[in-house]
Amino acid sequence: MTARIAHATTSGTFSLDGGTWDVENNVWVLGNESECVVIDAPHELAPIVDLIGGRTVLSVLCTHGHDDHVSVARELSEATGAPVRLHPADEVLWRQSHPDFDYEPLGSQESIAVAGVELQVRHTPGHAPGAVCFYAPELATVFTGDTLFQGGPGATGRSYSSFDTIIDSIRSQLFTLAPDTVVHTGHGASTTIGGERPHLDEWIARGH
Score class of each variant (00 low, 15 high):
129 P>H: 03
208 H>G: 13
18 G>M: 01
141 T>Y: 01
197 R>L: 10
54 G>L: 12
159 S>A: 14
82 A>H: 00
59 S>C: 03
36 C>S: 09
29 V>F: 01
181 T>H: 00
50 D>N: 08
6 A>M: 12
132 V>N: 05
48 I>S: 00
163 F>H: 12
2 T>P: 15
96 Q>R: 15
125 P>H: 01
115 A>E: 00
207 G>S: 07
1 M>R: 08
52 I>Q: 00
162 S>C: 09
62 C>I: 07
201 D>G: 11
188 G>D: 03
32 N>K: 07
5 I>M: 00
11 S>I: 14
31 G>S: 11
193 I>Y: 03
200 L>W: 02
129 P>E: 06
191 T>S: 12
98 H>N: 09
205 A>D: 08
175 F>S: 11
159 S>H: 05
16 L>V: 15
186 G>W: 04
84 V>I: 14
122 R>P: 00
199 H>E: 07
44 E>S: 10
1 M>W: 05
188 G>A: 05
121 V>G: 06
188 G>N: 02
165 T>W: 01
84 V>A: 07
125 P>G: 06
87 H>Y: 07
176 T>V: 15
78 E>I: 13
96 Q>K: 15
172 S>C: 05
9 T>N: 06
25 N>L: 11
29 V>M: 10
136 A>S: 03
76 L>D: 04
133 C>R: 06
188 G>I: 12
166 I>R: 12
97 S>T: 15
50 D>A: 14
64 H>V: 08
72 V>H: 05
49 V>F: 06
178 A>P: 06
103 Y>S: 03
132 V>A: 01
121 V>N: 04
127 H>V: 14
193 I>M: 05
125 P>L: 11
103 Y>Q: 02
192 T>Q: 02
84 V>P: 03
80 T>P: 05
14 F>K: 13
